[in-house]
Design a binder for these strands. Structure first.
Lengths: 218, 218
DNA sequence: CGGAGCCTCCCCCGCACGGCGGAGCCGGAT
DNA sequence: ATCCGGCTCCGCCGTGCGGGGGAGGCTCCG
């Protein structure tokens, strides 16, 4: 497959880099095309390989991940989506990175599955990345305007309705009937939901809905 | 649709009968073909209408649900599946009914969705009915040999494996690869899972897995 | 006024999925 | 010795689904 998602991994720790590479390379449709160990190296590698996604450690010697993010976004015509990777739950640097234009962030201890979903998500859509991990972080860090759920900010109201109905096991036709619209419309919304959640079919979308807390078992 | 599931409702309370009828009649593929208000009437109505499923109240004037169940199962060549309906959580009569050959039981306060699933389940397979409600009951009534999950007793080991993999969003082909068997085999197992869980597609099966606690959000 | 975002709906296409029926193999129970 | 349940596969077939486009109408906002 030539249209695989091209990923560059930037982290000063070798173990982390290889871990990320192994996980992502094992995944069809994702290809790690470069590694970097410093912020400066990250910038040049990205310029060189022109990836779709960059996994960027916040803490690196020399130029750190935040400044590297800034430079990449500022100097490339079609910049990749940058996902910040961090070890700590509430690393204030993460917010700096997000402010600098990062598409989202991940905890290093997160499940491989989430990493993959995250990469797929940022690669496909231009919505912010909000994997399940963000909840624990958001809960203790920004209890102020904590919105209901990770995606709801990015899923439109209609899309959220559709996802909720998908999570009750309904077919597109049934959802259409329920919402009083045509089946084609539902298909469109479903496609948007899949893109924004980084999933490939309705089953995965429903799983993501459960895993993220968007819907809960009764 | 001529092959709808034919249901007979037996309960002495009119409200209950109509509630069940309304819920079930609204559901495509399910048809309420008779009602009874006593155990004796239940037996004759069932003999007359030959339903696939009987919803039987345990407490009815005259012959109660348990004896009606016994008689139906004893005297019909191809007896319907009998689901006992009760108001109380730990009604010891329920166990009598199960011993008499009932296919499962439901709490009257249960969700409409569960009723429907229950009817579909018993109609399609010959496995015992174990909707989500049973857990609360099983928990406090028979803490002894309380098995892990409602269905696991009825799903074979292989089927449970397949369901777990379905709940990770995998396709049949991926499950096959993972298990080291052919795709056709996985299809067979999936079909069994759908039948036993009373679901019509993999998405619904995964939802049921979450709702029953068979799998849990992390 | 003119975009941008959202909702609505259309086409075509390929495929995974699920229903149906059949089959062989094996081990344990009767 | 027979039967049954579980696991393994095979076809065929219809269709729901998802990907790829495009298109018109709406509101909101600069």
């Amino acid at each position: 497959m030539s249209d695989a998602i091209r990923v560059v991994v930037a982290d000063d720790e070798r173990m982390v880099r290889t871990a990320l590479r192994v996980i992502l390379d094992a995944e069809p449709g994702i290809e790690v095309v470069g590694e970097a160990t410093t912020g400066a190296e990250a910038v040049s590698v990205v310029r060189d390989r022109l990836p779709g996604v960059v996994l960027m450690d916040v803490r690196m010697p020399g130029i750190d991940g935040i400044r590297a993010t800034e430079q990449i976004l500022a100097t490339l015509a079609a910049p990749p989506r940058i996902v910040v990777v961090t070890t700590f739950e509430n690393d204030s640097h993460v917010y700096d990175a997000l402010r600098a234009g990062a598409a989202g962030f991940l905890l290093k201890r997160g499940a491989a599955e989430e990493l993959i979903q995250a990469v797929r998500l940022v690669a496909r859509s231009d919505s912010l990345l909000f994997p399940a991990q963000i909840r624990e972080l958001a809960a203790r860090h920004a209890p102020a305007h904590a919105t209901a759920h990770p995606w709801t900010a990015r899923l439109t109201e209609r899309e959220a309705q559709v996802l909720r109905l998908m999570a009750t096991g309904r077919t597109n036709a049934e959802i259409a009937e329920r919402l009083g619209v045509g089946p084609a419309t539902v298909k469109t919304h479903v496609a948007s939901v899949l893109a924004k959640t980084g999933t490939r079919d309705r089953t995965q979308a429903v799983i993501a809905a459960y895993e993220s807390g968007f819907v809960r078992p009764r």
